[in-house]
Design a binder for these strands. Structure first.
Lengths: 353, 353
DNA sequence: CACTTTCGTGGATACGTTTTCAAGCATCTC
DNA sequence: GAGATGCTTGAAAACGTATCCACGAAAGTG
């Protein structure tokens, strides 16, 4: 069998031209119509496909783009990844995907792997500190964060509010990106979403609203604190570590330690799922005993009993836009993009009992 | 800034040895303890990372593994992908992921892209014909199918029952894999799962059981036909095309055209979701008016009203095993692996009304 | 001590491509 | 018609690595 593929040399020889000419023809360079036609014909006949290996080595970079998400099992990241893949496919670029498990250590390991592969474009839902991304940006990678920003590095004491703030479009950044704080990001408008949800619950009469968060929900909890106002009841703010078990434990613990709460804002879909499960287990009725708003709309929210009131975020668009940003990074370098959220009222919220 | 990374030459020069020695030390070849130590020290100090580009070009293959799934938004494929990524990460291998959208054309395009990248190991949930995979196996790729087998090619008229049959472990295959029908696969035991579900519904008194399928559910519908016995009511077997809209339309159409059915077997989680939605829209009560079994267990099945009775399949394990197969493909070449399914009885099935 | 074997080592080559460079040739300008 | 200009073209270099091969030294054997 023809075990090995045809190389550019084979094409050149068969067409009676030099390899340079073949390369030019296939890369859209200039060539006389006559030779161009012949080269194209020979290439088609030999079923020649240029090897990405040779090309990448020559231009010292892998064309592809890297994608690091915490967990593909989470519908949010599945949709985000689908958006990235859609954009990358239309550009013909391969995507190398890694799943970090929300573990900074694994994240660092995967960054190293991508570096080794010379992947020079990276879309990441960060888990680790801001300085975990130092190696990546220092190596010249074009990095775009999606859905989250990395938490402030322990030692790094720059503008403390910078990463918590919403980022706004602005066309021109003066210096090349060298610090993690400078990398562009595509985010949902968490602050507006959370504020809307809190106001909605307030309007229903709720005063003791709990926040159920997970890893990477820093901006959301900050928005929550801002929305509820100055004296935040810290017992109503709990965090899980990312696994479904941990989410369930956190939700269950919250309901048991604070039977006085009347509403819960779950900061992600697995937390919302856990909250429903825990409430059911403790014989709390939704929405009679406790109201529930979930951040992130998922298909099953409508199937749930009762249907869940949610803050929808355009997860797929986030991925798509991030991919666009990372691909057309040559021209301008926008600081970031913020996509709108939407409160979808279903049946999981009621007036304070 | 140090824009470019250190190469093997830099290490060799700094350590006062030849590049061959550095390569050997880092690849685990033989070297004197003295030089080994020095090379290692210098490499660490220079933060040297061997470039996958150079290595891959030299040995004419990309280390990584390719993964082709229809849709990462579908929880099943998200879990499968997570399994693949887990196994690949432990082996230090990058994974290039593509989403085919269940479209043979896009699938072929993505196969071409992987070929161009010289990815020589591929895990695929196939959408297209068996002969769509000819180019891949002919190019020497190690291919493993997961969750499904490709449908029989129109022209290819080999043993017709071969792909529909369950595949059994067998240690040694005589010839190298050259035909798509010969590539190993990791599957759930669809036949047993479907049979169990049908028997369960039969035991509840149901006689008119409908099958709601989607793309790639050939083996499941075959198992369904086998389980219900000879005279299959074809009006009770409907197919959707993969999108959520199409699934909903199929489910709704089924309920409306055949009000006499008493039970539905949905062949995938998005079909199950659509069935619940359509039933609710038509004021059919589950399980009073219609019983429902869904193939594939998902976290929200428990949250649904009523909780869904499902056939669970180990999606994550399927991915993990497939990755194992594709990585340790050097030694034996098993024809395939079949993983068990489990009927989980919740609340969506009742006696025939 | 002469010989063979083993081991550690470094130079050179090849992998497939893109890109630079200079040369060849035809056309245009004065 | 001589020089300048433009276009097309192929040889060669480079990218970073793994591996073949030869060479020298050390160790083992008679």
């Amino acid at each position: 069998m023809d075990a090995k593929r045809a190389t550019i040399k084979d094409v050149a020889k068969a067409a009676g031209v030099g390899v340079a000419t073949v390369s030019r023809v296939l890369s859209g360079g200039s060539a006389s119509p006559r030779t161009r036609e012949r080269v194209l014909a020979v290439a088609a006949q030999l079923d020649y496909r240029p090897s990405a290996l040779g090309r990448n080595l020559r231009q010292r970079r892998t064309g592809g783009i890297g994608l690091l998400v915490p967990d593909l099992t989470d519908s949010l990241f599945g949709r985000l990844a689908e958006g990235v893949l859609a954009c990358a496919r239309s550009a013909g670029e391969p995507v190398v995907v890694g799943s970090t498990g929300d573990d900074p250590e694994q994240e660092a390991e995967l960054i190293g792997m991508l570096l080794e592969q010379s992947v020079d474009r990276l879309i990441a839902v960060p888990s680790g500190d801001a300085d975990a991304w130092g190696p990546a940006v220092k190596a010249g990678m074009t990095v775009v964060f999606a859905d989250r920003l990395p938490s402030e590095a322990p030692g790094d004491d720059g503008d403390p509010g910078a990463t918590a703030d919403l980022m706004l479009l602005d066309g021109l950044a003066p210096a090349p990106v060298t610090r993690a704080a400078d990398v562009p990001a595509v985010l949902a408008d968490d602050r507006a979403g959370i504020r809307t949800a809190v106001r909605y619950l307030r309007g229903l009469g709720h005063r003791r609203i709990a926040f159920l968060g997970g890893p990477g929900h820093d901006r959301r909890v900050a928005a929550f604190r801002e929305a509820v106002g100055a004296p935040v009841d810290e017992g109503l703010v709990v965090f899980a570590t990312g696994s479904r078990d941990s989410a369930y434990a956190a939700a269950s613990g919250l309901f048991q330690s604070r039977p006085d709460l009347t509403a819960v804002l779950a900061a992600g879909n697995v937390l919302g799922e856990a909250a429903v499960l825990a409430a059911r287990e403790l014989d709390l009725r939704v929405p009679r005993d406790v109201s529930l708003v979930m951040y992130d709309d998922v298909p099953w929210a409508e199937l749930c009993a009762p249907p869940l009131t949610v803050i929808a975020q355009p997860a797929r668009d986030i991925g798509y836009r991030a991919a666009e940003l990372v691909l057309r990074s040559g021209s301008r370098r926008p600081r970031g993009v913020v996509l709108p959220t939407e409160l979808i009222v279903r049946g999981s919220c009621g007036p304070r009992r």
